[in-house]
Design a protein around this nucleic acid. Sequence first.
DNA 1: CGGGTTGCTTGACGATCTCAAGCATCAATG
DNA 2: CATTGATGCTTGAGATCGTCAAGCAACCCG
Lengths: 146, 146
Amino acid sequence: MTATAPRTPTKAQLLELVAALGTAQWQDFAAAAARHGLTSVQAKLLSQLKGPVPMRGLATLLVCDASNVTGIVDRLEARGLVRREPDPADRRVKNVVATDEGHETIRRVRAEMQATHSALDTLDEEERTTLYGLLERLRPGLEHRG
Amino acid sequence: MTATAPRTPTKAQLLELVAALGTAQWQDFAAAAARHGLTSVQAKLLSQLKGPVPMRGLATLLVCDASNVTGIVDRLEARGLVRREPDPADRRVKNVVATDEGHETIRRVRAEMQATHSALDTLDEEERTTLYGLLERLRPGLEHRG
DNA sequence: CGGGTTGCTTGACGATCTCAAGCATCAATG
DNA sequence: CATTGATGCTTGAGATCGTCAAGCAACCCG
């Protein structure tokens, strides 16, 4: 009775575990962001900026109203972490781009998610591959959904 | 070249995937809660109430300030989903308990997380067991952390 | 050019969150 | 018992987040 035989978990148990890990990881992210004076939402927006993204696109990515994005970008811009650039093809559109400092900041936030990193470090290569494969299969079903 | 050979994902890829699923699942939860007129935070608090929990305990569980819990419980109590009860052993303490309606509401919210449910349905028993085992191993490292 | 749509911002309002301050109660001490 | 310090909860101020309604500019189409 030392090694617990791997019973099949109920869907409820699995759901609870996924939820618990999701929030734990979010807390880790929020804490890392806070160390750099960012709220979790600001950091999340920043993490979407691999290239220029129009305001509307950010609203879609963050699953929120466009008017909400205005304020978040305002605060990030006031700190010099992002910039609003006019879109050459459509004068209505403003593309948001991360400044060098913005990129560097979000890079550090990701690097400082210690809890998540050390958790992932407990898995060996094969386990990581297995986990990745399973999570990838879960993704399509969880993709935004209208 | 049809079946993609399972490469070992980088830690960054794995981290990104975990983050993406975490937020997707959170969106699913929030949407289900909204259908019952609850914010995600209210629903999350409600989901912690298997038994009586003091205000202070809720603040710890939600990783937030105690003063924040006051307002959230106020709103839930105004709707009759929770109740504040005096603690027999310590008159400072107020224990929060879910009413029958509260329990029923959160049960429905969980049941209505369609995206999450259908995602989990794509896994067979063995895969679920494997996933559960791996996620459980990730849990200790992600458990609250100071 | 006129009319409908789209992208962004503004303003109003509620919910969340933190911090500082305050009150009541508990626990330990003399 | 009275004092002192810690603990549990609430209140109030102030910032952020989030929605909705309204408005303006620019696009698209006929």
